[in-house]
Structures are given as structure tokens and as C-alpha cells.
Nucleic acid binder design. Structure first.
Lengths: 379, 379
DNA sequence: TCTCCGTATGAAAGCGGTTACATCGTACGG
DNA sequence: CCGTACGATGTAACCGCTTTCATACGGAGA
């Protein structure tokens, strides 16, 4: 017996007792018509005499009839459910995406089933299968670990896949993506335009696509300005605040001078900011910092972080619209699939005017084991 | 025709074409058994000879058979779906709750359907009906606007309601709640213990239950210390950072001296912190600030906010467990329904030792129209 | 008045499972 | 050797709705 089948809990359950909810037969009987006619009225799918309609509507009201959506789904092979797989259900990025997406789908009467993939290939795969097992009409996925090929293979699945934040060439028409490269470019160019020449970079995990793209944009901006990319000024972080803190510590301790640092997301930038404060490095006077994502966090820290806006809410909405158009056939809806980042200049950046010597200090601050991030879920 | 019935989009859709997915009849045929036997194997619901079982399992594998969950739901009157209604799908509070809740339910093979109520009675009601219309087996709701009576009336619904962050006496066995009063008490007592006597309070919207409870705790702590509650030292905020900023501005401008302020959530505390910084009021030297919720934000601002931990993740998990136990009948699961807040003492609080005169300044800073919060969703 | 045609309605067959009940075969005791 | 009882399996009704196809009905034209 495949483990997929037996529900984890089915305690010798006979059919669940059914409450006294009216069904289509009772409505038909009360209205003295056939169930076919009632169905026609429910779905507005064929002409019905006004007199009959009124009888049926009255009967439905009297019995408080609500069509059983499961039976409808079985008969039509359409569940009106859209599965959504994201890395995590919390955090400003996915929260914003989910919120916009759900609002759009809900307005069209579609249900959203969510689950998390935790940025892990095995768990992402299980998540997709889990959602597909529910007969979702479509799947909107934000996967970071699964290879392109898996997504392509899955395409024969009845539920089409909409892919967020990623471009799979063979599935380009189902991908929604931001030009991360351009974002990295804009962030770095901001510093260059302010006059910075020694610019450090704190990357996301390089195994993830967007991290690599943002870095590529950074390099392009440097190249364009004739600045050599220095390997020692780049540190790979983990997209968390602790990673940002460790990264800046490492950069400072390495001893190479720099007056600006680009972080591949706001959370790492916040971590870096905290380290700068601890070490007495003034931001932006001594060190300019740029983040990425424009998460709410970027406005809560002091000084407010210059950052690159990631229009994730809009992208979520567009993913929903893609589904409404291509799966549910609403041709009137227009969909945007590629998005451009915007630069938001804020207080964490200035000209490298008066860098105090500390900005490039190699002073070693004792910091044996950086405290573990508690910034995620509480037990 | 009731508007509830006709799906918003049903473009003269005939039955959706069915992909070549095997059903139970094909499995039965290939294995030369009846569908009843196949079903028994799927559900492990009755003894089957080992030889037969092997034939059937082989057939299922060969045909890549996956039971149609919709058909199962129709036959058993159990959808394995749990509906979740929260105020918003974003933000650290709901994100954490959703995440924990989903993880717990997913592990038991249950699906989570989410939707938002936006803290508005009408929309909360629509949200509940929306979820109930999907034949969810249970509903976990975090509603702030709907009156108790509506929840009680809804109780005759086939899907039981689990109520978060609220106590409805008639439905006490389905309510999970934090002792918000105790939280407000702890926050204020922290300041009192540090030696503060003039303590301001920035409340949440008093129409919401938890806001009133937190305020009550504050008052109790004051009373216990023999401090008179001063109406002018209390401002009703909106649980957003801008509201916190406006509230502190108002308090400072009112001219009454105070050395500590308790904010009913971290976001407002962050707003207050920003105002303090703008006005040159040192935190905590001149002014101690306490937040509430222990959101990630409280650790990102400087100085780190003392706050009251709201174990929302754990509460989400427990809501899931309530459902697993009481709806899906897993008696082995234990459930906790009431929770105690914990005080987290951090850098934003100190003794009122050396309050600079500015802490109680009435200097008017020009600030005609505080900028609107962008801290939520981007368009 | 009769035929023809279009339209509103009804009958019934699915959709893909679950399960109560019938049936068949076999081992066992008398 | 036969009746019995029990365990494995099959038959068929059902879950509640959709949809095809047949039918009945009514009006227009001859």
C-alpha cells in the first residue's frame, strides 16, 4: 500500500455523520422540478422560464440550500482550488506575496491552499506532490532548490505550474520574475555615483538563483565604472541578519579598506548595521549600506536603509491573474510576467566624504560565537 | 439565483478534460479484484490476503494510481481541509501563526485553506462563509470584529470553529487565548520595578479585545504600585508604527512628565522610538520603552526593545492540534488552550536614573502631517 | 386543423470513490 | 461426511452534482 494513500488518521471512521443540510434533490422536490433544472439555475448554464426560476430560488432559500462544492468538483473535475508553495509562510516577502495573491483569487471565488517548501529540494518536491494530490486546478510555486528539470517533468501534470522568482526557459510562459541582476546593478551603482570606489558585497547563498543574479549585477556595475572586483570584498551570507553580521565582521577583520557595502537583502543589511554600531562605525558617515527587497524592516532600522524595491506583492497578484486567465479562462485579464526593480535611496547611504579611520579598522572585536538568530519562529 | 452559487467565472465550461489518470476501476481490473478490495487496501480498512494485496499494490504502481481526493471527500463527507481565517496573511504575528499551524496539519496530511478577514466584521463574516462553503472539516479563526453571538450562532455549522486570541464564554472549549491582561501587567511592572513612576501608555484600538485587556493589565500594575492612572498619559494608537509615532508625539506635546512608556505592540514601540530619536531623546537614558508581541522587529531596532513574548507560534500549533484531536479523533494528542506571556527585558529599558530634561520636554517639533505608513503592502 | 420546429424540462448516466450486505470457500467439530 | 461458522471477496447502492440526450409542449405557418 503506497504510503500516500492511507490518511495519517482515519480512526475506523465510518462516513462522517451528515448534518441536516439540504441537497439538490430536496430543492428539486420542493420546487416540483427536476434536479437538472435546479443545476441549471445554480450555474446559470441554460435558459429557464422565469416562473420556474422563481419557484426554485424560493425553494433554495427556504431550505438554505448551498451546493456541495465537493460534489461539484467531482462532477466538473474542477476544484476551484489553487495550491501555493512558498519557502516559508512567514516573513515580509512571502507574507506580502501570499496576501496579494489570495486577495486576487478570493475575489474570483477561488480557494488558496498553502504549504511550505523550506528551500529544500526534497521538501519542495513533497510539497508539490501534496498539493497536486488535492487536485488543485493550478499550482503557484516559489521553489529555490528543485532543479529546472523537475519542474519541466511535472508539466505533464493536470495542474499547470506557475513559477515565481525564476526563469525556466522551457517554461518561460509560466514564469514570473524580477530582474535581480538589474537590482544588484542599481544598488551598486548608487554607491558608485556617490563616489565610493571600494565597495564590499554581502551575497545570499550562491546556490540560489537570485543571489547569483544580484551578484552578477553588482559585478557589472563595478566593471562599468572601471572598478576591479576584489574577491576578498565579497562574502557569502545566508539572507539572515546573523549572516549579515558575520559577513560584515569578516569583511572588517580582513583589513581591506571599503566605504560602502551592498547586502543582497535587507535582513543581512540590518545585521551589518548592528555590527557597525557595535564597532562605533557611523552609518552612513563612515560606511554606506545598501539593502535589497524593501522589506518593512528597512524602514524600521536606523538609519533607514537604502534598498532595492522588490515588487513581490504585485508579482503575487500577477501570478493569481495568470491562473485566472490561463486556467479559468478569463480572457479579459491582463498579466505581467517580468518586473523591474526600483532603487530607493534612503539615509544609510551618503558620499564617502569623511570616513573616520574606524571605517576600515581591523580592530578585532571579541565575538566568539555570534548568537543564534531567533528572528524566525518561536517554539 | 443566489449569488453564492454561480462561480464568478465559468466560461460555458463543459467538464474539464480529464488527463489519463488511472482510477480505482482500472486498478481493480488489472489486479483481477473488485473495487472494494482496492479500496480496502487504500484505506487499510479491512483484512486482505497478502497475495491479493501484492497483486493490487503492483497494479497501483503500474498505473501510477493516486486516489482522487475529491471523490474520497464526497464519499466520506470529509475533506481533510482546514480553513484558516486571519486578519491579514502578512506580518510577523499571522505569519508565525500560519507557519506553525500549517506545519502541524500538513504532518497529519491535512490541507490548509487560508483567507483574510481584514479586521472588519462584514469581511470576516464573508470569509467564514467562504471557507464553510468549501466544506472544510474545521475552521480556525482569528476574528476581531465579529461579535461573540455570531460565532455562537455559527456553531451549528458542520465545521467546528476554533477561536484564536479570544475567549467566548459559551464556546470556551474551542478558544485559545493568551492572558493579555497579564502581559500588560508585566510590561508596566517592569518599568515600575526599575523605579519609574510616571508611565505613559500607548494602547491599541480600544474596540479590539486584546487592546482593552492589555490596558487593563497596565492599570492593574499601576494600582498595585499605588500610582494613579492619568488619563492624559494614555493615547489610543492603531497598532502601526505611524500610530506609535503620533502617539508619542502627542504625549510629549501634552507636557506631562513621564520617564517610561508602554506600547501595546512592538510596531507602535518602533514608531515611538523613531520619534524619540528625532527629538534627541535618548532611549533608555531619557525614556524607557516597552513593546508587546516579541516580533522580529523588536530585535532589529536600536536599542533592542524590551517586550512581552506572545507565543503565537505555539498557539497556532495548538490550534492545529485541537483540530487533530477533536475533529480527526486523534486522542493521543494533547492540547493547551491558555497561554501565559513572558517578559523579555532588553536594552530599551533602564532605571530613570539620569533623565535629561529633554525626556519631558514640551518642545514642539514641526511635524504637520506624519508620513503615511508604507509599512504594509505595496500596490 | 395539422405539421414542423424551437425551447423548456426531465431522465439517467456518469464523476471516482466507500461501505453495507451478500456470497463464496474453507476449516473444523460432531 | 455434513453442517456450521468465519474470513476473504464481490455486488451494488450511495455521496451530490453536472450534462447529454430524449421528450413534451407551444406557437407559427400552411
Amino acid at each position: 500500500m503506497p504510503s500516500c494513500c492511507a490518511s495519517a488518521l482515519r480512526p475506523t471512521a465510518a462516513r462522517r455523520p451528515v448534518p441536516d443540510v439540504a441537497n439538490i434533490y430536496q430543492v428539486a422536490e420542493l420546487a416540483r422540478v427536476s434536479v437538472a433544472t435546479v443545476s441549471r439555475i445554480i450555474n446559470n448554464s441554460a435558459k429557464v422560464t422565469e416562473k420556474t426560476r422563481q419557484r426554485v430560488v424560493a425553494a433554495m432559500a427556504e431550505l438554505e440550500f448551498r451546493p456541495n462544492s465537493i460534489a461539484q468538483a467531482l462532477a466538473t473535475n474542477r476544484t476551484n482550488c489553487v495550491g501555493v508553495l512558498v519557502s516559508e509562510l512567514y516573513g515580509p516577502f512571502f507574507g506580502t506575496m501570499l496576501s496579494a495573491l489570495e486577495q486576487e483569487l478570493r475575489a474570483a471565488g477561488k480557494f488558496v491552499i498553502v504549504t511550505a517548501g523550506h528551500s529544500d529540494a526534497a521538501r519542495e518536491k513533497i510539497g508539490i506532490q501534496f498539493l497536486a494530490g488535492r487536485n488543485c486546478d493550478a499550482l503557484i510555486v516559489h521553489v529555490e532548490a528543485l532543479p529546472d528539470q523537475y519542474l519541466i517533468d511535472h508539466d505533464r501534470n493536470p495542474a499547470p505550474l506557475v513559477i515565481m522568482n525564476r526563469v525556466v526557459p522551457a517554461l518561460a510562459d509560466r514564469c514570473l520574475s524580477l530582474d535581480n541582476r538589474q537590482g544588484g546593478y542599481l544598488a551598486t551603482r548608487l554607491l558608485i555615483e556617490k563616489g565610493h570606489r571600494n565597495i564590499a558585497y554581502v551575497s545570499g547563498p550562491l546556490g540560489w538563483l537570485d543571489a547569483g543574479q544580484r551578484l552578477a549585477g553588482h559585478k557589472r556595475a563595478l566593471a562599468e565604472a572601471g572598478i576591479k572586483f576584489v574577491e576578498q570584498l565579497m562574502v557569502e551570507g545566508d539572507y539572515h541578519d546573523t549572516g549579515g553580521a558575520m559577513a560584515l565582521t569578516q569583511l572588517l577583520d580582513a583589513g581591506l579598506p571599503f566605504t560602502g557595502v551592498v547586502c543582497a537583502n535587507d535582513e543581512m543589511a540590518a545585521g551589518a548595521l548592528a555590527v557597525a554600531r557595535e564597532r562605533g562605525i557611523a552609518v552612513p558617515a563612515d560606511l554606506s549600506i545598501v539593502g535589497f527587497d524593501n522589506s518593512p524592516l528597512s524602514r524600521h532600522v536606523f538609519p533607514k536603509l537604502a534598498t532595492v524595491d522588490y515588487p513581490i506583492g504585485n508579482m503575487g497578484r500577477m501570478a493569481a491573474r495568470w491562473v485566472l486567465r490561463n486556467v479559468y479562462g478569463d480572457e479579459t485579464i491582463s498579466v505581467q510576467q517580468t518586473f523591474e526593480p526600483d532603487l530607493l535611496e534612503r539615509e544609510s547611504v551618503s558620499a564617502p566624504g569623511n570616513p573616520s579611520p574606524r571605517a576600515t579598522t581591523r580592530a578585532r572585536v571579541q565575538r566568539k560565537s555570534p548568537r543564534r538568530s531567533e528572528s524566525r519562529r518561536r517554539p
